[in-house]
Simulated assay, not measured.
Amino acid sequence: MHQPPSAPILNSFPSANELVESLAAFIVKLQKDSIDKKGRFTVAISGGSLPKQLKGLIGNASVKWDKWQVFYADERAVPLDHPDSNHKLCFDELFSKVPIPSTNIHTLDPSFIEDLEELSDHYEKELIREFAQKDSARFPVFDLILLGIGPDGHTASLFPGHELLAEEDRWVAYIEDSPKPPPKRITLTYPVINHAAQVAFVATGEGKVDMLSNILDKPEEGLPASRVKPVYPGQLYWFVDDAASAKVQYPRTPFRL
């Protein structure tokens, strides 16, 4: 019998700096557990404001960058050095400042950006190479997926009312009509996100206050971020600051490792 998803754990911090430090400590602990267990740490990262929240990893001697395998939770169909590229954003904010081997960062193949089906298929093959030969699971099981939320409640490139919300088979899907530019993107699907061992949303600032309340207090509204429900024994965490959680009624959990 399938176990129901565990309830999300909401960690709210008085300041953005405390959030950054605690998020880094959380990631380092997951990394250690994963490396001890299987010799690697698999992570998927979104773009937006999220990469800036990972600065607590820079210069952190506990981070074993050579053991990380990094994928993108979603990516825009643009060259890797384009201002809209999530990879460029993550590279500028984080990866250019740490000793991670470039081969451990799995980018989209820019030669396919004109053909979204080929682009998403190629990225799915990257996932298969990393996961299918090492884990015998229907879907890849990331150690950690890090996500943000948009003002409309979207996460990754899963947007309200879009047909991709119902995707149940593909690991990577493409979208040609994103309501937020650029319109052409690829994204991990819910089956992949919800099979992760740990998923963490990061949201800061009073600009997120109404949306955060909607997602956590009214999950029945079915916003894309509300549909992130890791299957048991996976766990969903929220790392937010008090400005973002000011209207949330959902119970907070004191942060502890």
Rank of each mutant, 00 (worst) to 15 (best):
P5G: 13
N11D: 02
S12H: 00
P14K: 03
E18Y: 08
V20A: 07
L23A: 08
I35E: 04
G39I: 06
G39N: 07
G39P: 05
R40D: 10
R40W: 10
R40A: 11
I45F: 07
G47F: 04
S49Q: 06
L57Q: 03
L57G: 01
S62A: 11
Q69G: 12
Y72W: 12
E75A: 03
P83I: 00
D84H: 04
N86D: 04
H87F: 15
K88R: 13
F95P: 05
F95E: 03
F95T: 05
N104F: 10
I105C: 09
I105W: 07
E114Y: 12
E114S: 15
L116Q: 00
H122I: 11
E124G: 11
K125L: 07
K125E: 08
K125V: 07
R129F: 05
S136K: 11
A137K: 15
A137I: 12
R138M: 13
P140R: 00
P140Y: 02
L146S: 00
I149V: 14
G150E: 05
M211G: 05
L212H: 02
N214L: 15
I215N: 06
D217E: 00
E221D: 10
G222W: 13
S226Q: 13
K229Y: 04
G234I: 01
G234R: 02
D241V: 04
K247M: 10
V248D: 03
Q249R: 11
R256N: 14
